[in-house]
Design a protein around this nucleic acid. Structure first.
Lengths: 207, 207
DNA sequence: GTCTATACAGGGATAGAC
DNA sequence: GTCTATCCCTGTATAGAC
């Protein structure tokens, strides 16, 4: 989007000596840190997930983590990215657009701490001067909107989605609704999430 | 909702010696702290809004703030509550339901740091064991859903809102969409917020 | 390459002086 | 009612052991 020229798409602030996956042990450690982190988040919340707490869960010193991730922000972003990638396959099976959005949210809801982390990082991305997180979420959002837009267009051609609505605006609506409703769902669990997304589904369906 | 018996509706953890508005000076100080806080948030972001930074903006020591607010969490919550009350009047003028949701979001968007603070606090409310923030947002959500539901029902009776949709589910959808889309709007400013809410408006309008 | 030890600046919270 | 002093906890940086 409006990000400055950045040649490294995935990692924002690359560690000096991260070998391109050459050392098996290092890569393994990296994965372990990612997995433990989300566990600690689920147990102690995002705020309680200090570098020392993660390190302790592994049997480490907190300083060691900085070998793999420049700072806490980068670590958290990596956790979200990992979760995104794992969910990507499942997401690709979506049949309808709201099905897509619903799956996206539900994947997050499955892993206890993930949605909390996602929200915490989103709110940090809104902070002034946080280019790393902001561009991450901007890219993510742009990508998701494009995917949903394509699905919607296909649906319109197939005659299952109303033809009098703009696909990309509808995509933004679906994604926004899924995001907002899943927060709501976590705040007070109930069936409003399902119901609301289903309603949206019928609203955009061809008459 | 599922909140524990709580006799104090507005303030979650009352200060030991808050006199029921008896001391003008104290009340004035409290207001000043609230106003400065939102200013500091706008300038330095939520993370940068330390008790010391707020105190410095007033000409205080950070410890003095704890006379008026038990901790930072309570202070932030009070800022949001203040903003809610100020926006309430404007909100009451809403004609349609999505107009309501749109206004609610736009009021937040007007004050630079407010939406960031709102999101930061929402994400904290998702943390385990944070009863204070969680119940605040639960109550807020319940209240807003009820108000929108009423507006919707009136619209249905007047024939401007489709009659085949459930008012409360629709209210949840509107609120969720407004929340999710406003984050999106802050992340990358554009006109997708307006467009998407307008779309939702037409979707729920009577044919 | 990987990790420990250690130091540092800055945060929230609190006790007690005035 | 406000301040000073202090506590313990963060993330971060660096030096050096292995």
């Amino acid at each position: 989007m409006n990000a400055e020229p950045d040649t490294s798409p995935s990692t924002t602030a690359p560690i000096r000596s991260r070998p391109g996956r050459r050392y098996a042990k290092g890569e393994q450690r990296r994965q372990e840190i990612l997995e433990r982190t989300i566990e600690v988040v689920a147990e102690r919340g995002v705020e309680g997930t200090t570098l020392r707490a993660i390190a302790e869960a592994i049997g480490f010193t907190h300083a060691a983590i900085t070998r793999y991730f420049a700072d806490r922000e980068e670590l958290f972003l990596a956790v979200l990215q990992e979760a995104d990638q794992r969910g990507a396959a499942e997401l690709a099976e979506s049949r309808s657009a709201s099905d897509f959005a619903t799956r996206a949210a539900q994947i997050s809801l499955r892993a206890p701490g993930l949605m909390a982390l996602y929200n915490a990082m989103t709110s940090r991305a809104l902070e002034p001067g946080n280019v790393a997180s902001r561009s991450h979420f901007q890219e993510r959002h742009t990508r998701l909107v494009e995917e949903i837009t394509t699905t919607l267009r296909t649906g319109q051609e197939a005659g299952v989605i109303r033809r009098d609505i703009d696909p990309s605006v509808t995509a933004a609506l679906l994604l926004g609704a899924a995001d907002g409703l899943s927060v709501q769902q976590l705040l007070q669990p109930g069936d409003s999430f399902e119901a609301a997304m289903t309603l949206l589904d019928t609203l955009i369906a061809a008459p």
